[in-house]
Amino acid sequence: MARHLTPPRPVLPVALATLVALAGLGPVAPAVAASPSSPSPAALDEVRLPSGGFVRGQIQALMPGQYVEIRKLDGEIQRFEWSEIQSVVKADGTVVERDSAAAPVAQPEPTWEPGTESGTAGGVDPGFGEATPSDAGQSVDGTASTGAGASPGFVPTGTPGPDASVGPTIEIAVDRKGPPVSLYRLGDSTRALCEAPCNQAIRPGYLFVASSGKRIGKGFEITTDAPGYRVDVKRSSPLRKWSGVALIPVGLIVGIGIGIIPALHNVPKSKVAGYAVGGTLIGLAGIGGGVTLLMFSRSKVEVLPQTGLARR
């Protein structure tokens, strides 16, 4: 369910991020050689291949020395034999190298916290797909893959949850041409998640869109209630804005001018009321038209859940 928000308060996201980060330290498995590392840019799990490629998504099953299964952002699950991978990099930065793997350890399902990047939802899902060369190098969430920051250590995933997907697919539709429109997560305006038309799966949370460094419309929340969301972005219109700004005083001046004509010009008294009414109507029309133009000149973001959208 999309929900419009008031301007973000910086305290809450920081507190949530701190809590989630602390919670994420709990399920570290001592049986696996793991060590913290810098999180990947997209805060997704990553299976790195010997060829240098990688596949990003959410780890569904990790059996060190046997296989690893990862659900990609399009919902497809791929299975890699242990010999096919180079390493597994968890979203929190822990790394499991192929050669250091021992035995698989099941972990409880972590919970996702809205507005954070570190939450994951894991689980085993049958019907694994096989890795193909074309899958290598897949990048989601609008971030570039660096392949750096790997180190030993990994937090295995737990049992399947009710929502094992990465998140709903976001489609951004912009009403007219202009500077690129990008999607950002509230509290992190330095990193664009994707650029219009996006068409990528985005982890649930509080988001907003911006263009040329300026935020467009209000922030909104996406959840896993819908398989996808369409974000209609309406750019601001300077022509309408300044037309409205001009129309208001012009309407007022003309309306007042017509209203006071009987005081400046000699007109039949039977028509004085007509001048007053006409002046008032013209003034009100100018104000109303100007305000309407101003309202329609503002940028606007409308988020529509796509109930019938098939996850790719």
Binding site: G257, I258, I261, H265, N266, V267, P268, K271, Y275, G278
Partner: peptide
Amino acid sequence: LSCSLLLAAGLSGCDD
């Protein structure tokens, strides 16, 4: 001028 504009706008009876 203002009266001419008014007359052009159909507002008659101005400064007869």
